[in-house]
Computed example of a mutant assay.
Amino acid sequence: MERGTTLFLKVAVFLIGITVLALCVFLLPWLANYTAEMYPEFAYLQYPILIGLYITAIPFFIALYQALKLLNYIDNNNAFSELSVKALKYIKYCAVTISILYVIGIIFLISQNASQPGIAVIGFTIIFTSAVIAVFTAVLQKLLKNALDIKSENDLTV
């Protein structure tokens, strides 16, 4: 594989990480304060929601780091290795964790009678996207594991 392709993907992963970090540091606190001023009846939810969003950022950044490691394995011609399978496993776990945390968050908002349709749509979109990523990485992980098993069998027969 050409290095330009993986370089492009590394830059994209890096830019996504920087964007989400900037959102977490600058935009989310401002948005939480602005929303609390606009809707004072829901101001008590400001910090639990921020904490929940910051907690979901942790597996997101772990998954981005694993994606960078996977791209490095591809660059080093180690794409078909146990390390790649392990990186895909961690990405899958992170995606499942994000989905679960958002389900818990939506249930919390509904229990507080604070779920707005726009927020619910965003939450369900994130849940669906994370679930798709989890399934996709699980399939890739299984295919890669099968390829490694076949390679191992061929190495033993020769």
Rank of each mutant, 00 (worst) to 15 (best):
M1R: 10
M1I: 09
M1L: 12
E2W: 04
G4I: 12
T5C: 10
T6C: 11
T6L: 08
K10S: 10
V13C: 09
F14H: 06
F14S: 15
L15V: 09
I18S: 13
T19E: 07
V20P: 00
A22E: 06
L23W: 10
V25W: 05
W30E: 14
L31A: 15
A36L: 08
E37W: 12
M38N: 13
M38Q: 15
Y39I: 15
F42P: 00
F42Q: 09
Q46E: 13
Y47K: 13
P48L: 10
L50D: 01
I51W: 08
I51G: 02
I51P: 00
Y54R: 14
I55D: 07
T56W: 00
A57H: 01
A57D: 01
I62F: 04
L64A: 11
Q66F: 05
L71G: 03
N77C: 05
N77V: 06
A79I: 07
F80S: 13
E82I: 10
S84C: 10
V85K: 12
L88S: 04
Y90R: 06
I91R: 00
K92L: 02
K92E: 14
Y93P: 00
T97N: 04
I98C: 02
I98Y: 01
S99K: 04
I100E: 04
L101V: 05
L101G: 04
Y102N: 06
Y102F: 15
V103K: 03
V103E: 03
I104F: 14
I104M: 12
G105E: 07
I106T: 11
I107S: 11
F108M: 15
L109I: 08
I110Y: 09
S111Q: 12
A114E: 09
S115G: 05
Q116E: 12
I119F: 11
A120N: 10
A120K: 03
G123L: 06
G123V: 02
G123S: 09
F124G: 01
F124M: 11
T125H: 01
T125M: 12
I126Q: 02
I127C: 03
I127K: 01
I127T: 04
F128H: 01
T129L: 13
A131V: 11
A134L: 08
V135S: 09
F136P: 00
T137W: 02
A138C: 04
Q141I: 05
K142Y: 11
L143A: 08
L143I: 10
N146V: 14
A147Y: 06
D149G: 05
I150K: 09
S152H: 06
S152A: 13
S152F: 03
S152P: 00
E153F: 08
N154H: 09
L156S: 08
L156K: 13
V158N: 07
V158K: 10
